[in-house]
Design a protein around this nucleic acid. Structure first.
Length: 553
RNA sequence: GGCCCCGUCGUCUAGCCAGGUCUAGGACACCGGCCUUUCAAGCCGGCAACACGGGUUCAAAUCCCGUCGGGGUCACCA
């Protein structure tokens, strides 16, 4: 036996861990119904889902609504929709039930009452009759004297008689935890390793309010036990809550779950926690702004209001609305704090399930970078076959009123959608990008001209209109059947030689005349898809506009 | 402030536990070039980091101590 092994200090066994059947973890995601799904929240859900489903276990969704009187159902919908969109299906929870229900904390009051009762009986908790003001006074006094504060237990009722006395004074009791005052709480965190917290720093937390309702920590511990949760995987902000939960669990005689505290997701370019309320600040960040504005443009093209309450790159709804692929969002998210090795970046759902493990989760917080998310989106989108892309893009065209809904599969317009997606393929990174090509679906007299582009390519160059006119005459020589990209290109080359001009002198003018803007996919393809009649009509409209503007000056 | 956690390119990270193969690897962003009818895409190239200071060691991003910095948490919120 090696010497250093002999010298290894004998450590007291940490708190008993739950008897593991390592085969089937049960994890849970426990959001409170706030009406939106935060990026950090989904990542927590993802990791929980991966641990459970990667090892043949169950992923449970539980709603922490102990404090909500609002419309829970309504505030819950965006969360459920978001999880479903991403494919993070739950095995037990709202809308599907399960054998450990109900899955709303507001409906599990009886379980909590029993737990409180037991805590009271065993002396792990006590009735307390301090008013909130009295407690605040104590705390402030301690603060003034710069000493650590602990509740004095002055209004603790140790006996039934004391309770009656306090109540006779008109006081209403809460139930507090009777926390240990010395020693250390030790637990093994799956991500952080051994964590030690002195009990002396813990308060006698309230677990039941004066109105009889119960607080989060109690509910959470009781539920985790009854739902047989094996791994509590949650955000780091709960790390310092863990000792009190361990205390509750042990006092109740529950085996402990394993804990894993994920580093939180930080703001772009800083170490602060990502918050949905700081949208304005994040917009100062160029990458963030770029992603947001691209999204905003899509919403505007759809005629949807841009509501900062719901349309915000900090929330998953944003990505769904704009047309990201769930695969891309998951791929980005899984790498936010986790990695497999030094090079693998592409993870499908199946690959994540196969490879994910908590021991490769990073301990430091990770900044959210929407530009990198976009890069993943681009990669995933490149792999989507044409027919599927058409399917993704269609709802955007329909909502914008550019294409009827439903669209007959064999209608000429269906063919056009396909062509546009085909030619614009590299330019469509999110489904909503199709709306950049709205001009391909608008009437020849309706599509708008970008003023700056019109100015630059048609108005300002002295010869532009004349050349355009001449080129239109050449185009007229082609029959509708001859109106093909290759033929048009040939024609233009001849045209350029004939007039001894550079191709740039005509091609930009044609593009702006026909599309209304200076950017787009291949011009010859654009003309082909538009067809002879539309092309000529649009050029005539542009020439007319040039004339109007010139004479108007 | 107490307690807890964290600290590798601007960002996500690999490497750290088992010190040399690290003149620190990959990706995003950025910059430059090629391609080109525009803008993208694509291809090629470039910039760029071990928070700091002490130890231990022949050798430290890796081990130890300290400092600094950042964050979380301290509710009759979740």
């Amino acid at each position: 036996m090696p010497d250093d092994l002999l010298e290894f200090p004998v450590t007291p066994t940490p708190l008993p861990a739950m008897n593991q059947t390592p085969s089937a973890p049960r994890t849970r995601f426990a959001p409170s119904p706030t009406g939106y799904l935060h990026i950090g929240g989904v990542r927590t859900a993802l990791f929980n889902w991966l641990v459970a489903k990667g090892q043949g276990g169950q992923f449970i969704l539980r709603i922490d609504d102990t404090d909500q009187q609002r419309n829970v159902e309504q505030a819950l919908q965006p969360i459920l929709e978001g999880l479903r969109w991403l494919g993070l299906d739950w095995d037990e929870g709202p809308e599907i039930g399960g054998s450990h229900g109900p899955y709303y904390q507001s409906q599990r009051g009886q379980l909590y009452q029993q737990a409180v009762q037991k805590l009271l009986e065993t002396g792990a908790a006590y009735w307390d009759y301090a008013t909130p003001e009295e407690v605040a006074q104590e705390r402030e006094a301690a603060q003034r004297e710069k000493r650590p504060w602990r509740y004095s237990r002055r209004w603790m009722a140790a006996t039934e008689e004391q309770r009656r006395r306090f109540e006779a004074e008109g006081r209403r009791g809460v139930v507090r935890l009777k926390m240990p005052q010395e020693g250390t709480c030790v637990f093994d965190d799956l991500i952080r390793g051994r964590v030690e917290v002195p009990w002396a720093g813990e308060q006698d937390h309230v677990i039941q309010r004066a109105d009889g309702s119960v607080l989060y920590h109690l509910a959470s511990v009781v539920d985790d036990y009854h739902m047989q949760i094996t791994h509590v995987i949650r955000a780091e902000e709960h790390l310092s809550n863990t000792p009190r939960q361990i205390f509750i669990a042990q006092a109740l005689g529950y085996p402990l779950p394993r804990y894993a505290h994920l580093p939180y997701v930080a703001e772009p370019g800083s170490r602060n926690k990502l918050s949905k309320r700081k949208l304005k600040k994040y917009l100062n960040q160029p990458d963030f702004r770029k992603v947001y504005e691209a999204g905003t443009r899509i919403m505007q093209a759809l005629g949807r209001p841009v509501d900062p309450e719901t349309f915000n790159p900090v929330m998953v709804q944003f990505y769904r609305a704009v047309g990201y692929l769930p695969e891309a969002v998951l791929n980005y998210l899984v790498l936010l704090g986790w990695s497999l090795d030094e090079r693998t970046e592409d993870f499908s759902r199946e690959e994540m399930l196969r490879h994910f493990s908590l021991d490769r989760v990073n301990r430091a917080p990770a900044s959210f970078d929407p530009a990198k998310l976009l890069a993943f989106q681009q990669r995933w989108m490149q792999r989507v076959p044409l027919a599927e892309k058409v399917r993704l893009v269609l709802p955007y065209l329909q909502e914008a009123g550019l294409v009827p809904n439903p669209l007959e599969p064999n209608a000429p317009l269906a063919r056009r959608v396909e062509q546009v997606v085909h030619y614009a393929e590299d330019r469509i990174t999110v489904a909503g990008d199709i709306l950049q090509f709205a001009y391909m679906f608008q009437g020849d007299e309706e599509f708008p001209y970008n003023e700056k582009d019109f100015q630059k390519r048609l108005l300002k160059p002295a010869e532009a209109a004349e050349l355009l006119e001449a080129f239109a005459q050449e185009l007229e020589q082609l029959s509708p059947e001859q109106f093909l990209a290759s033929r048009i290109q040939e024609l233009m080359q001849q045209f350029v030689e004939k007039h001894s001009i550079k191709i740039g002198q005509i091609i930009h003018a044609v593009r702006v005349a026909v599309t209304g803007q200076a950017v787009g996919f291949g011009l010859f393809e654009t003309l082909e898809v538009l067809g002879r009649q539309a092309t000529l009509g649009r050029i005539r409209r542009a020439l007319r506009l040039v004339q109007e503007k010139r004479s108007g000056e």
